[in-house]
Amino acid sequence: MDGFGVTAAFWGLSALAVGSALGIMLARSLLHAVLWLILAFAGLAGLFVTLSADFVAVAQVLVYAGAVGVLVVFAIMLTPNSQTGNSETRMVGPGLFVASVVSGIMVYIATQTDWSTAARGDFPATALEIGTALTNRYLLPFEVASVLLIAAMVGAIVLVRAARDEPERRELAGEGEGEVNTAEAAGREVVAAGSHGGH
């Protein structure tokens, strides 16, 4: 039914994706784990191509392998806590058990169910159809997604900015100059006392 190329591509890309995913688990360095993640994303993009999802594959490479990969690298660079490395908690055994059970159930369902699959045609181009669908039938979700992206962008900026102001304010309060700063310092002490009392 399928050509040899499609079959070989499926097995090769599947091995790449699963092996890279295991590489995230086994890598000792955080940065190596990110590189394995990007490789897994690339393998999944290849699997999307074998499923005739050209637009999704390009979006996968752009958004996941590109943007999310760079974002994770930045986050790891900004949190330089290499003492623990890519270590596990004591949940590694139970986690493996739970993941195996969940994965096994899904494999069982996938192999036992009689999927009424139709014969596949050729590889159709999907980008034009997706664009048409996004601007007609799925217009409302499309607009909601844009609002979500704006909210996420503003939220990320606010989160990181608020944290960045902290040390500067503390330094100013420590000097004890200005009414606002001393008032803030007093408020901070009250908050600190409250949090210490809860211990």
């Binding site: 688990m25 623990t84 986690g95 969940v102």
Partner: peptide
Amino acid sequence: LFGIGLWIALAKRNAII
């Protein structure tokens, strides 16, 4: 792949991982 991702999410120590 879902199982491996679940294992990573359950067992790793670093929040970014």
